[in-house]
C-alpha cells in the first residue's frame, strides 16, 4: 500500500507542468525516501530527475517499493482538476493497476476522487554521479526564462561564458547576434533576486535553446534556478521545491564540428 498527502495540490500541479512538454511517459518510483522520477526526453538529448522527499509530505506511507508507470499528459490533465489550495492524496495498492488522486477543498466540503490507469513501462535508468562543477550560477528563475526566450528569437543555441563576477549568454543567427551580460549581485536585500557566480575555472559552452526553454517550464516551482557547468559534461539546471525536493534537468553541450 502506498499513500501520501500534500497540503496543497499546487506544488504537484506545477511539477507536472514542468515535465509534461519534455516527457510523455514516466515511472514514479515510490520508496520510504519519497517519490522520484527519472526520464530522458523522447529524442534522448536531455534527462530530467525529480525528487519529492518523504519529510515534505503531511503523511507518507509506503509498505514496499513500487513503480507507478504513468502517461504524463493524463496525469497532468487529472491534476488540473484540483484547485491550487486543495489538499491532495495519492494512493495505490501494491500490485494495483490504478493510482487514486483525491482532492479535498480547504473547508472539507468537497472531495473529488479520480482513478488513473497505470502503465507497465520499462524505462532505461541512468546513474547520475555526484560531481564538482567548474562554475555554478544562481539567478532569479524568471530572469533565466526570459533570457532563454529572448535569445530564441535570434538563434537555436546559446553560448554561455562564465567568468569571475558575471555570465554572458550569447546567440548568433541569420538575422543577427545577441549578447546578454548578467553581473553578480553586489548587495541584495531579497535572496531570490540575487545572482551569484561561483567560478573554479572559467567555462565557455554552447547549449540548445529548444531544451533550455522546455526546462524553464519549471520556473513557477522556484524563485531561483541554479546552473552547474563544467567542460564536456552535461549542464545541470536545478529548481529547488521548498521543503519538498527538486527538479533537475541535464543537457549535454553541443560539440564543435
Amino acid at each position: 500500500m502506498f499513500e501520501c498527502r500534500l497540503p496543497k495540490a499546487e506544488v504537484l500541479k506545477k511539477t507536472m507542468d514542468a515535465l509534461k512538454d519534455l516527457i510523455k511517459e514516466a515511472v514514479w518510483d515510490v520508496s520510504a525516501q519519497g517519490l522520484s522520477l527519472q526520464s530522458m526526453d523522447s529524442s534522448h538529448v536531455s534527462l530530467v530527475q525529480v525528487t519529492l522527499r518523504t519529510e515534505g509530505f503531511d503523511t507518507f506511507r509506503c509498505d514496499k517499493n513500487i513503480a507507478l508507470g504513468v502517461n504524463m499528459d493524463t496525469m497532468q490533465k487529472l491534476m488540473k482538476c484540483a484547485s491550487n489550495d486543495d489538499n491532495i492524496t495519492l494512493k495505490s495498492e501494491d500490485n494495483g493497476d490504478l493510482l487514486s488522486l483525491i482532492f479535498e477543498s480547504p473547508n472539507g466540503e468537497k472531495t473529488s476522487e479520480y482513478e488513473m490507469k497505470l502503465m507497465d513501462l520499462d524505462i532505461e535508468q541512468l546513474g547520475i554521479p555526484d560531481q564538482e562543477y567548474s562554475c555554478t550560477i544562481k539567478m532569479p528563475s524568471g530572469e533565466f526564462q526570459r533570457i532563454c526566450r529572448d535569445l530564441s528569437n535570434i538563434g537555436e543555441s546559446v553560448n554561455i561564458t562564465v567568468v569571475k563576477g558575471g555570465v554572458d549568454f550569447s546567440a548568433k543567427g541569420d538575422i543577427g547576434n545577441a549578447k546578454i551580460h548578467v553581473t553578480e549581485s553586489s548587495n541584495v536585500d531579497n535572496e531570490k533576486d540575487a545572482v551569484t557566480v561561483e567560478v573554479n575555472e572559467p567555462v565557455n559552452l554552447t547549449f540548445a535553446l529548444r531544451y533550455l526553454n522546455f526546462f524553464t517550464k519549471a520556473t513557477p516551482l522556484s524563485g531561483q534556478v541554479s546552473l552547474s557547468i563544467s567542460p564536456d559534461v552535461p549542464l545541470v539546471v536545478a529548481y529547488e521545491i521548498e521543503d519538498l525536493g527538486h527538479v533537475k534537468y541535464f543537457l549535454a553541450p553541443k560539440i564543435e564540428n
Binding site: 536531455s46 554552447t206 549535454a252
Partner: peptide, 13 residues
Amino acid sequence: MPQPSISSFFMKT
C-alpha cells in the same frame, strides 16, 4: 553544431 545524446554521458543502471 552536433548535439550529443545525454545517455552517452551517464552509465546505465
